[in-house]
C-alpha cells in the first residue's frame, strides 16, 4: 500500500512539465526515503534524476518498495486536471496495475480521483558515481534559460567554459556567432540573483543546446540552477525543489573525434 499526500500539488505538475518531453515512459520508485525516478531520453544522451524526499510529504506511507511504470504523457494529462492550489495524493496497492491521483481543492469542497493504468517498463538504471567537479556554477535559473534560448537561435551547440573570469557560453552557426559571459556577482538583497562560481580547475565542454533547452522547462521549480562540470564528464544541471528534493539532468558532452 502506497499513499503519498503532497500539499503543494503544483510541484508535481511542474515536475511532469519539466520531464515529459525528454522522457516518454519511466518507472517511479517509491521507498521509505522518498519518491524518485531515473530515466534516460531515447538516444541515451540525457538523463533525468528526480527525488522527492518522504519528509517533504504531509503524509507518506510506503509499506514496501514499489516501482511503478508510467507513461509520462498520460500522467501529465491527468495532473493537468488538478488545480494549481490542489493537494495531490498518489495512491497504489502493492502489485496492483494502476495508480490513483486524488486532487483536493484547498477548501476541501471538491475532490477528484483519476486512475491511471501502470505499464511494464524495462528501464536501464545507471550507476552515477559521486564525483568531485572541477567547476560548479550557481546562477539564476531564468538567466540560464534565457541564455540557452538566445544561443539556440544562432547555433545548435554551446561551449560552456568556466575560468576565473566567469562562465562563458559560446555558440556559432550559419549567420554568425555569440558569446555570453556571466561574472561572479554578489547580491546583498537577494541570493537568488547571485552568480557564484566555485572553480578548482578551468573546464570547457560542448553540449547540444536542444537538450539544455529542454532542461530549462524546470525553471518554474527553482529560482536558481547549478551547473556542475568536469573535463570529459556529463554536466549536471540541478534544480532544487523547495524543502522536498531536486531534479537533476545529466547531459553527455560532445567530444572531438
Amino acid at each position: 500500500m502506497l499513499e503519498l499526500r503532497l500539499v503543494q500539488g503544483s510541484l508535481l505538475k511542474k515536475v511532469l512539465d519539466a520531464i515529459k518531453d525528454l522522457v516518454t515512459d519511466a518507472n517511479f520508485d517509491c521507498s521509505e526515503s522518498g519518491f524518485s525516478l531515473q530515466a534516460m531520453d531515447s538516444s541515451h544522451v540525457a538523463l533525468v534524476a528526480l527525488l522527492l524526499r518522504s519528509d517533504g510529504f504531509e503524509h507518506y506511507r510506503c509499506d514496501r518498495n514499489l516501482s511503478m511504470g508510467m507513461n509520462l504523457t498520460n500522467m501529465s494529462k491527468m495532473l493537468k486536471c488538478a488545480g494549481n492550489d490542489d493537494i495531490i495524493t498518489i495512491k497504489a496497492d502493492d502489485g496492483g496495475d494502476s495508480v490513483t491521483f486524488m486532487f483536493e481543492s484547498p477548501s476541501q469542497d471538491k475532490v477528484s480521483d483519476f486512475e491511471m493504468k501502470l505499464m511494464d517498463i524495462d528501464s536501464e538504471h545507471l550507476g552515477i558515481p559521486e564525483t568531485e567537479y572541477h567547476a560548479i556554477v550557481k546562477m539564476p535559473s531564468a538567466e540560464f534559460a534565457r541564455i540557452c534560448r538566445d544561443l539556440s537561435t544562432i547555433g545548435d551547440t554551446v561551449v560552456i567554459s568556466v575560468s576565473k573570469d566567469g562562465v562563458k557560453f559560446s555558440t556559432s552557426g550559419d549567420i554568425g556567432s555569440a558569446n555570453v559571459v556571466c561574472r561572479q556577482n554578489n547580491s546583498v538583497d537577494n541570493k537568488d540573483n547571485e552568480t557564484v562560481i566555485e572553480m578548482n580547475e578551468p573546464v570547457s565542454l560542448t553540449f547540444a543546446l536542444r537538450y539544455l533547452n529542454s532542461f530549462t522547462k524546470a525553471t518554474t521549480l527553482s529560482n536558481t540552477v547549478t551547473l556542475s562540470m568536469s573535463k570529459e564528464l556529463p554536466v549536471v544541471v540541478e534544480y532544487k525543489i523547495a524543502e522536498i528534493g531536486h531534479i537533476r539532468f545529466y547531459l553527455a558532452p560532445k567530444i572531438e573525434d
Binding site: V45, A46, L47, E124, L126, T206, P234, I255, D257
Partner: peptide, 14 residues
C-alpha cells in the same frame, strides 16, 4: 567536428 557521446560512455548500468 565534435561528436555526441552517450551516457553509457561515462556511467555503467546499475
Amino acid at each position: 567536428k565534435a561528436k555526441q557521446s552517450s551516457l553509457f560512455t561515462f556511467f555503467k548500468k546499475a
